[in-house]
């Protein structure tokens, strides 16, 4: 039993050391699985994108409180078939950190969502389309900051055919049979 515990401790300590030694090299923000939104030709729809900031880190909100801070911005690549509309960001949390306890920064921590408005053209063929973009963010922890990063993002939009317009019978002319 003691040997088993020692072995487990050895492996755990190696893992902790490895994380400490390597530092936050991977993305500090990850995108969740985006839902496949079904949109009718010509109609707008909102695609909710979810993101997670790694524990112990924060990123600036879309509207940070200082001109020197880098806001979180989602850039969606323009497509020929789908019009990309407004991007809606959540409000950040006002938080102070150990490095500046008297100052409040507006940040995202943990999970947050960004909504993207999409509208397929009337002429676009029904089917599944991939929309790509990047989330630019700049992360810090309590004692250090990390250079800005661009997280590639993508989501699927399923375009459905618009229902055919209701057929109207032509008005009967009273003189039609004369």
């Amino acid at each position: 039993m003691k040997i088993f515990l020692t072995s487990a401790l050895l492996l755990i300590s190696a893992g902790v050391w490895a994380q400490d030694e390597l530092g936050p090299q991977g993305p500090l923000v990850k995108m969740g699985v985006a839902p496949v939104v079904t949109v009718v030709q010509g109609k707008p729809a909102t695609v909710p994108l979810s993101f997670r900031v790694s524990s112990g880190y924060h990123i600036n909100s879309n509207k940070p409180k200082s001109e020197f801070l880098i806001p979180t911005v989602l850039k969606v690549e323009a497509t020929t078939d789908i019009v990309i509309g407004k991007t809606t960001y959540p409000e950040g949390q006002d938080m102070s950190f150990a490095f500046a306890p008297d100052e409040k920064l507006n940040v995202y921590t943990g999970d947050f969502n960004v909504d993207v408005l999409v509208r397929p053209l009337h002429s676009v063929q029904a089917g599944k389309y991939v929309v790509r973009g990047t989330l630019k963010y700049q992360a810090c922890d309590n004692a250090a900051c990390y250079p800005p990063k661009q997280l590639p993002i993508s989501f699927d939009v399923k375009i459905a055919k618009a229902a055919p317009a209701a057929r109207q019978n032509p008005a009967q002319s009273p003189h039609a049979h004369q």
């Binding site: 040997i3 072995s7 492996l11 300590s13």
Partner: peptide, 15 residues
């Protein structure tokens, strides 16, 4: 003991 040695080797390789 074999378990311990395997853990030690894995930890060393990780390091």
């Amino acid at each position: 003991l074999i378990l311990f040695f395997v853990a030690a080797i894995v930890a060393a390789m990780l390091f």
